[in-house]
Structure formats: C-alpha cells, structure tokens
Write a protein that binds this DNA or RNA. Structure first.
Lengths: 131, 131
DNA sequence: ATACATGCAAATCATTTGCGCAGTC
DNA sequence: GACTGCGCAAATGATTTGCATGTAT
C-alpha cells in the first residue's frame, strides 16, 4: 500500500478517510471543504495532489461523467454506476460485473481489452418525485 | 432537423461535414484546424458554439473519456467504444447494443433508466506493435 | 428589417505547478 | 539530515461568453 517515494501525511490520510465515509462520489472541491473542517489550513492544491497520489497507489478511483468535473470513489472493486441526467447524482449499482460482455467484444476489438466501464443514464427517484 | 431560432451557416455545415468524414472521434481543436483549411477566418469559439448547437439538435454526440478533453462523434446510433489507455485513441465497436444489460439492471436501479454507455478499455493493436 | 451567427478577446473554471518552508523517516 | 509534502499563488488548458459587426431569411 506504501508507494516508493511516499511518506505518510495527515492531510492525505484525512482525504482518504473522508472519501471512504461517503457514497456520493464527490468532487475535489467537496472533499476540500469537508477536510478543511479538521485541517483548516489545507489548500485545494494539496487535495488535488493527494487525490492523484491515492489514485496512483490504487487506493481510490477517479471517475468522469462528462460534466467537465472529476469525481472520486473509494470503492475500488469493479462496479457500475447509475447517473441521473437531471440532477447529476451518481450511485453505485449492485449488479455483478459481466465478464460475458467483455468476452463477446474481445473478438471484435482491434487490441487487448483490460476492463470495461458501464454507466446507466436516467432519472433518479428523487428527481421523479419532484416533478 | 432545423431547430427553432436556428439559421443555416457555412461554418456550421462545414464543421458537421468534417465530423462526418472522420472516424477518429476528434477534439474541438482538431476540428478547428481541419475546418480552417476551408474557412481560414473561423475562430475556435465558433467551433465550440456550433458543436454545442449540433449536439442540441441531436446531429452529433459529445463524448468524454475522462481525459479532460471533449470528443465528438457524428455516428449517433447507439454504439460502444474501445479506448486505448496508452495512446488515447477511440474506436467504434461493432457489437449490437445489449438491451439485456439494461433490463437486468432496471430492477436494481433507484430510478428510470433511459440508456447506458459501455466503454472497453485496453491497448490497441498499433500500440501493441510498437512495444 | 430582424433575428441569429461570427470573429475576436477577455473571462471562467477545474486542475496543475513552482517555490520556499515544514514535517516525516 | 535528506527527502517528501504543504500552503500559497501563479500558470495552464479547455471551454464559455460579451460585444460589435456580418449574414441569412
């Protein structure tokens, strides 16, 4: 878990803890505000730098749903997402990843497939109620 | 195909043609350079504005593979993509979209699913040869 | 004539980076 | 003590926007 050339730091561990405690796939800005409550002098740059380190260490995932904002996830087991196109919320989907899908495509794909990513797009229950 | 409050323009049609002629899922910058050969005075802002219009008209798709750059595609029929994690190239996958995938998830998802998006991630043949 | 579209430049917004100081091993 | 990480502020890079002018209908 410890990368070469990597020391431990209060800021980094706090960032990781904050991310573990939420299921909301937050942005760097959100994490920054959250961590600042415990570490008031932390800077946004530090948050970005550490999110980068954590991703390189494989401790977190970096997600992107095409909004031009990056989101982060401490759940690193392969899983799919449901994205609400109305409010932008993202939630984890409890369906076992389908290796079949990858197998079927391997034959057609001009290269080697390592993994796949599946997003469901729709409208979440909260938004449905409010309409 | 004609949206209300939308006139025809040489720039917009040219941008659309350029996008139709390629299978490379280009960025706005690439489209800009391409269109500039025919319309030398076109500005990058115009390219962005028109890509936006074309997307709202449903004539093109806006894609995002988490590189922080937006890509565009004139193939609007639902289809999947193969992304090379080494060189970043993107290619269309000729596998019929699996409604099954969506059906299976509907039961678990807290909302209404409109569509899904599937990306295969791996290494393309070109990169495999060069290594 | 009346919108709508353009070119240009400046503004925005998320993210990255250079620097001198501080914390960890 | 050597090296890594921090806070700060400035830089970057993609995309957006305001404005005066040009163009399609």
């Amino acid at each position: 878990m410890q990368e070469p050339n990597t020391k431990r730091s209060r800021q980094r561990e706090k960032i990781f803890q904050v991310l573990r405690r939420t299921r909301s796939h937050p942005t760097a800005e959100w994490i920054f505000k959250e961590v600042r409550q415990d570490v008031p002098k932390i800077s946004l740059g530090t948050v970005y730098r550490n999110l980068s380190v954590l991703r390189r260490q494989g401790r977190i995932l970096e997600l992107d749903f095409g909004e031009g904002i990056r989101r982060y996830d401490a759940v690193i087991q392969p899983h799919y997402h449901f994205v609400c196109s109305r409010c932008g919320s993202v939630c984890d989907i409890d369906v076992p990843p389908l290796n079949v899908v990858t197998e079927q495509a391997r034959t057609v794909i001009p290269g080697i497939v390592d993994s796949h990513r599946l997003d469901y797009i729709g409208t979440c229950n909260t938004c449905l109620e409010h309409s």
